[in-house]
Structure formats: C-alpha cells, structure tokens
C-alpha cells in the first residue's frame, strides 16, 4: 500500500464523508419534526368529525392515505436516484436507491394492510382484485424484486446499475396506480384530494390528513437518510476490511 493510492482512496471518500456529516446533523431534528407532525395530525384526526356514512372507521384514512402516497413517492425517489446512477453517475445515487427500497416496501405493505383493514368493514372482504389494489400489490412485488436484486449482486456498482434499470422500467406502474381508479371501474374510491377541480374532502378532515401526510413524508426522508448513512458506513467497513486483509499481506511478505 503506497502513499499515493491511500490519498487517492481518501479523496474518493470525500463526498460520502461530507454526506455523513450532513446526515448526522439532520437525522435527529427531522425525526423530532416528524414525530411532532404525526402527533398533531393524529390528535386532530381523532378530534375531526366521524364520516356520516363510514362512522369512526374513516379515521384509518389518516394513516392509510399517507402510506399509499408515500409508497408511490418512494418509487419516485428511487427513479430519480436511478437516473442519478445511469445518467449523472452520482456516487451516492445507487446508495439512495438501495436504501429507499426497504423503506418503500414497508410503507407499501402498511398501505396494503391498512387498506385491507379498512376494506373489511366497508366492502365486507379483506381483499378484492380491482385495478387499484392489484397495481399497488404489483408495486409491492417490485419493491421486493429490487431488494432481492440489490442483495443478490455483491459488486455495489453492478448491483446499482441493474437495480436502476429495473426501477426506471417499474416507474411505468406509478401512473397506472394513480389513474387506476379513473380508468377502470373499481371498488376503491376515486381520488379525493389531488383533483383538477379541487379536493372533495371536507376541510375538517383534509387538514389532519395533510398534517399526517407531511409527518409521514418527513419520517420517510428521516428513515431514508438513516438507511443511506448505514449503507455508506457498510461500504466503508467493507473497503476497510479489504484494506486490512491487504495490509496484513504486505506485512507478512
């Protein structure tokens, strides 16, 4: 191990090092912020009037809808990261993609589970194979596929590029999920918040929903940042292990 390659290695780590410092500073305040927002949103949600048709069951909306939004937003974040890997070749892009997938799969799973729990009293069944539910289920499978892919390939660079391609192809599913309730006749209710003609949901319900949604979004980015930091550290450990093995080699020779 000569001096020049050592310095070269540290220059290569410079960018992730700055990222780590940034992440260390941001994670705690973001976590606190998301907890405050979630607490406020949930309190408001329980204060909000019950739905005249659905009764108190409707309150599951305050977590179901944010989970569903985030499940899609996470894939959006991964798609941007995929572009970062393939087009701009940013060194942190494939870290961002790999770290986002497990968070996304949890949010999608929670969206499916809460929707299922909501559906049982409303529709009389846990699950129907309508367009919205099916497309979200496909999203769930795609997340698992990306996770399996990133874990199956040892070489980080190759795994990152492969996952990036799959992620971009999978992004086709996002508009399908969004517009599935409009394109097909489904049991799932149509969009109520993001519509061309404004939200159809009453403000007393809209506000808690927006606050919890914001809270979960901040939570997502907190988790994402923490996962990215873990991944950067993991790669650094891996590099150090290789270095340690080689240094030992040099000493014994």
């Amino acid at each position: 191990m000569t001096e020049t390659t050592l310095t070269g290695r540290f220059a290569g780590l410079a960018n992730p090092t700055r990222f780590l410092a940034l992440a260390d500073r941001l994670i705690l305040p973001m976590a606190v912020l998301s907890l405050l927002l979630l607490a406020a949103g949930l309190v408001l949600g329980f204060r909000a009037p019950a739905d005249y048709q659905q009764g108190t069951t409707v309150r599951i909306m305050y977590i179901h809808v944010p989970f569903a939004w985030l499940s899609m937003m996470c894939w959006g974040v991964m798609s941007v990261a995929a572009l970062g890997t393939l087009v701009w070749r940013h060194p942190l892009a494939d870290v961002a993609l790999k770290a986002a997938a497990p968070v996304g799969v949890v949010f999608t799973g929670l969206a499916l589970a809460t929707g299922s729990i909501w559906g049982k009293p409303m529709w009389g069944t846990w699950w129907v194979w309508d367009a919205r539910l099916t497309s979200v289920f496909v999203l769930f499978l795609m997340y698992l596929g990306v996770i399996a892919l990133t874990r199956a390939i040892d070489d980080a660079g190759r795994a990152g590029r492969a996952a990036a391609v799959i992620t971009l192809v999978g992004a086709v599913n996002l508009p399908i999920i969004k517009f599935s309730v409009d394109w097909w006749n489904t049991l799932h209710q149509p969009a109520a918040v993001f519509r061309m003609d404004g939200p159809t949901i009453h403000p007393t319900m809209l506000w808690p929903l927006m606050i919890t949604a914001l809270g979960f979004t901040v939570l997502f980015f907190t988790l994402h940042l923490a996962a990215m930091r873990t991944e950067v550290l993991r790669r650094r450990i891996f590099a150090m292990q290789r270095l340690a093995a080689r240094r030992e080699e040099g000493r014994s020779a």
Binding site: Q241, A244, A245, R246, E248, E249
Partner: peptide
C-alpha cells in the same frame, strides 16, 4: 492472527 474477524471473501 489479526484477520479472524474478516469475511472469508475479503482474503487474498
């Protein structure tokens, strides 16, 4: 002696 903790894959 000092490399026991390393994953076997990292060895030469």
């Amino acid at each position: 002696g000092s490399l026991g903790y390393l994953p076997f894959s990292t060895l030469s």
